[in-house]
Amino acid sequence: MTGRINKTLGLLIGAYLLVFLQSHWQGPRLWLGFQPDLTPALLVCAGLTLRAGHVSTSAMLTGLWLDSLSANPLGLSVLPLFIAGWAVFTFRDLIMRDELVAQFYLGTAAGAAVPLLQVWLLWLVGAAPLFGWEMGVWWLINALFCGVAVPVFARLAKLLDRWFSHPLHDPNRWPNENRQIVRGKH
């Protein structure tokens, strides 16, 4: 349980920092000509490792934070992010979720689907943002970035988990350092 809470906290802190960086760090925009959005990758990570409640909490908070810093109607990003995280969560037992390639494909798919869903929802609520064929290029690149980001985030999450959680007790593990009787001379 503690491990899960740590993971959720880590993920939420990561989402908070990521949303802040996407809004306040102009480097990628100046180099690439667009601002990459890696939040779908974060939700894929949540879907791969966390429970249903944690996935929905992550989607809600990340979506609300993103929308609060944007001209999108508040709450618009929640549903696309939740769908991405939930789809992974539902089918995660059927996929080789620890494989790097699987994570890359999941991230790429989520990175491609989430902006499309956001644009569709914007169109539904009657907002009129800028669209154009040139967006197709950054949509594709952003999807690939998300694909690359999922394995990176997953490994980062594992690393943080190892730092901040007690290792799970595994009676079958040998040598078991907690139980091993070290015999000396006497």
């Binding site: 949303v19 996407q22 809004s23 306040h24 102009q26 925009r29 667009f34 601002q35 959005d37 993103l66 810093l69 944007s70 001209a71 999108n72 956001q118 644009v119 914007l122 943002p129 800028l130 669209f131 967006m135 950054w138």
Partner: peptide, 14 residues
């Protein structure tokens, strides 16, 4: 200027 809209389809600064 301390920030920008994170979505590429809007043009806003903070």
């Amino acid at each position: 200027v301390v920030g920008r809209d994170p979505f590429n389809w809007w043009r806003r600064i903070k």
